[in-house]
């Protein structure tokens, strides 16, 4: 992938990711998150992970974000009014987040492996859906079925939580 496309998509993703937490209006935050996920899907495809990129668009930008928007509109949330901010908690949280970022960047800049470029693939055709599927239904068959049970439990749990009164 040409490097300017990488920086374009990475920049779009980071700007809209920051807008998610800057926006006061929850609907604007959710729509920024959609754009952020689309940029992330483009980055996945630049890493030759086409299957994961498609899944990202379908599951995250499609299903999950529709769920978010649905709940925001169901609860009829307005842009939150300005409250008196707890400045000690705000600066504390900001300092912790910035120090985490500085630590991550320091580790990356000291790692020798991070300075290498990506090795070329053996063939431009990766067949990644086939390869991921073979692993998923072969070596990772048990975790795959456990995930199925997890989704079943989550579905039952959501229905129980959504009932008005439990008997």
């Amino acid at each position: 992938m040409p490097s300017f496309l990488f920086w374009l998509f990475a920049g779009v993703m980071l700007i809209f990711g920051a807008l998610v937490i800057i926006n006061r209006n929850p609907i604007a935050s959710a729509l920024s998150l959609v754009v952020c996920f689309l940029g992330l899907a483009a980055l996945f495809m630049s890493l030759d992970a086409f299957f994961i990129g498609i899944i990202q668009v379908l599951v995250y930008a499609g299903a999950v974000m529709v769920l978010f928007l649905f709940i925001i509109m169901l609860l009829d949330l307005r842009a939150e009014e300005r409250r008196t901010m707890n400045w000690v908690a705000f600066t504390g949280g900001f300092v912790v987040a910035v120090s985490l970022l500085v630590q991550i960047l320091a580790v990356i800049s000291r790692t020798q492996m991070a300075k290498q470029t990506f090795p070329p693939l053996a063939s431009p055709q990766t067949d990644d859906v086939r390869n991921v599927g073979l692993l998923l239904f072969g070596h990772y068959n048990l975790p795959f079925q456990v995930i199925g049970v997890l989704i079943l439990v989550a579905t039952v749990g959501v229905i129980v939580l959504s009932k008005r009164q439990l008997r």
Binding site: A10, M13, L43, L47, L105, S109, A114, K115, Q116, T117
Partner: peptide, 12 residues
């Protein structure tokens, strides 16, 4: 060329 570190930086 983009390096591994670029992707890790964006991710961080």
């Amino acid at each position: 060329m983009t390096t591994l570190g670029d992707y890790l930086t964006v991710s961080g």
